[in-house]
């Protein structure tokens, strides 16, 4: 299949970027990233600068790959990361727009590569259980109902890719933050610090310059792990609760 790619090229953070057009010959069994590999091999053979894009595990779990494909983070397939998207989702002769995740808190490094360390700092602000190695009691000491564990797991499947921020017209990180808050808050081990965790993580999120949530729901629609905005509602509930708490 023959494709026309319109790819965002930007030399570095401070320079101005623009779309450039490329022609590429692809096979329907290729993954989307393999199609870009082919393009890069082509560019390298012409001694041109290859398109910088990030990827690693290529099996949909590490959260490294990003890309906005035709206006949608991770492209047109539901619940699929870019690396798991295959060219059979496209037709011969298609024109595909490829651009980086766009949000002020995710500055562009080069071409399609963005800096998502803001997510790390949100986790560092409180996205953990304060337990040192060796302090744990027996794993079965506190039974956790199967359903609760499963719900916590659903929230914990977040791969930290940032598609939620990229999809949100407000560049909000609420889905990411709330998924972590819920994952830990649902489990008895994480409940102890729940209130302070919510406050600290929300404060850090604001500090990083992410937008407010206005319940558009695009994050949920584009999340490759299909994490629900139930998490956001639950975090809001926790946040309202923590404001009325008398504790610091």
């Amino acid at each position: 299949m023959k494709l026309t790619l319109k790819i965002w090229r930007q030399k570095n953070q401070s320079s101005k970027g623009a779309f450039e057009s490329y022609q590429v010959e692809a096979d329907e069994h290729m993954s989307f990233l393999e199609m870009l590999d082919v393009l890069n091999e082509q560019l390298i053979s012409e001694k041109k600068s290859p398109v910088a894009f990030e990827h690693d595990c290529r099996e949909g779990i590490c959260g490294t790959c990003n890309l906005v494909i035709d206006g949608r983070p991770h492209g047109p397939s539901q619940g699929t990361t870019t690396c798991q998207l295959h060219m059979r989702s496209f037709k011969d002769g298609d024109t595909i727009h490829i651009e980086p995740f766009r949000a002020r808190s995710f500055p562009i490094i080069k071409d399609l590569v963005v800096d998502r360390t803001a997510f790390d700092r949100i986790i560092q602000s409180g996205g953990y259980v304060s337990v040192n190695t060796g302090q744990a009691q027996d794993g079965n000491a506190i039974p956790i109902e199967g359903n609760t564990a499963a719900k916590a797991f659903d929230s914990a499947t977040c791969i930290g890719c940032g598609a939620c921020v990229a999809a949100c017209p407000n560049g909000s990180a609420m889905l990411f933050t709330s998924a972590k808050v819920q994952h830990l808050g649902l489990l008895p081990q994480g409940k102890v610090e729940h209130k302070s965790r919510v406050q600290k993580m929300v404060a850090q999120m604001d500090k990083e310059g992410f937008g407010f949530c206005s319940n558009v729901g695009a994050c949920e629609a584009e999340c490759p792990k299909e994490i629900s905005i139930d998490n956001i509602a639950a975090m809001n509930r926790g946040f309202v609760g923590s404001m009325f708490s008398t504790e610091e």
Partner: peptide
């Protein structure tokens, strides 16, 4: 000890209905 440590950190291991 690894299992204990991970549970304490909030790793959501699969559980039976009884919570174990």
């Amino acid at each position: 000890e690894i299992i204990d440590q991970c549970v304490a950190q909030g790793v959501p291991f699969a559980r039976e209905y009884g919570g174990l």
